[in-house]
């Protein structure tokens, strides 16, 4: 019993701590967690953006795209490496998020592509962007810029985000 209580307290404290550090948003039934982008080399014509979206509702929704003053265009793309060949395709109809499901946008998979960033993305900075969903509509978020080699399993500025993934 005591162990359970200790564990429960730990969970609550952890959640509270995350509440302070966390960088997440809610849009109706959508929970948007930790939008981040990778720092870019100077002159880089594109930058990748990543985040996690959980649909806690009963209706499916769809991430259609976005916009940002930090880039000429904000597109949703999917990267794959199959048989040693790297490919990238636009998700022209957006990406569906079924009820109860979590959509993870991460390096090497589905991602947001910031096309022609106004200036190089610098580690430690943040920039605003709007995500556009079919049902939840426009959602204003901030992308935290992480180091160039950052991966979801090793967040350096934010704790408790993302799940281990193999890239």
């Amino acid at each position: 019993m005591k162990l359970v209580k200790t564990l429960a307290l730990g969970l609550i404290l952890n959640a509270a701590a995350q509440g302070v550090l966390a960088h997440d948003y809610e849009a109706g039934p959508l929970a948007i967690d930790h939008p981040w982008a990778r720092a870019t080399p100077p002159g880089a014509p594109v930058a990748g953006g990543y985040l996690t979206i959980t649909n806690t509702g009963t209706e499916p929704d769809r991430l259609l795209g976005g916009s940002s003053d930090a880039a000429e265009a904000v597109e949703i793309h999917e990267s794959t490496i199959t048989d040693g060949v790297a490919r990238m395709r636009s998700a022209e109809d957006g990406i569906a998020i079924a009820p109860g499901e979590t959509l993870r946008l991460e390096p090497g998979a589905v991602h947001i592509m910031f096309v022609d960033p106004a200036k190089p993305l610098k580690d430690g900075e943040r920039f605003p962007a709007t995500l556009i969903f079919e049902k939840a509509g426009d959602v204003a978020v901030e992308f935290a810029i992480m180091p160039m080699g950052a991966t979801p399993e090793a967040p350096q500025n934010h704790e408790g985000h993302g799940a281990p993934v193999s890239q």
Binding site: R38, A44, V46, S79, I81, G108, H111, M148
Partner: peptide, 13 residues
Amino acid sequence: TRCPDVCPTTLFE
């Protein structure tokens, strides 16, 4: 360079 993941990651690694 218009490759957001694999190319800069390879250079970085």
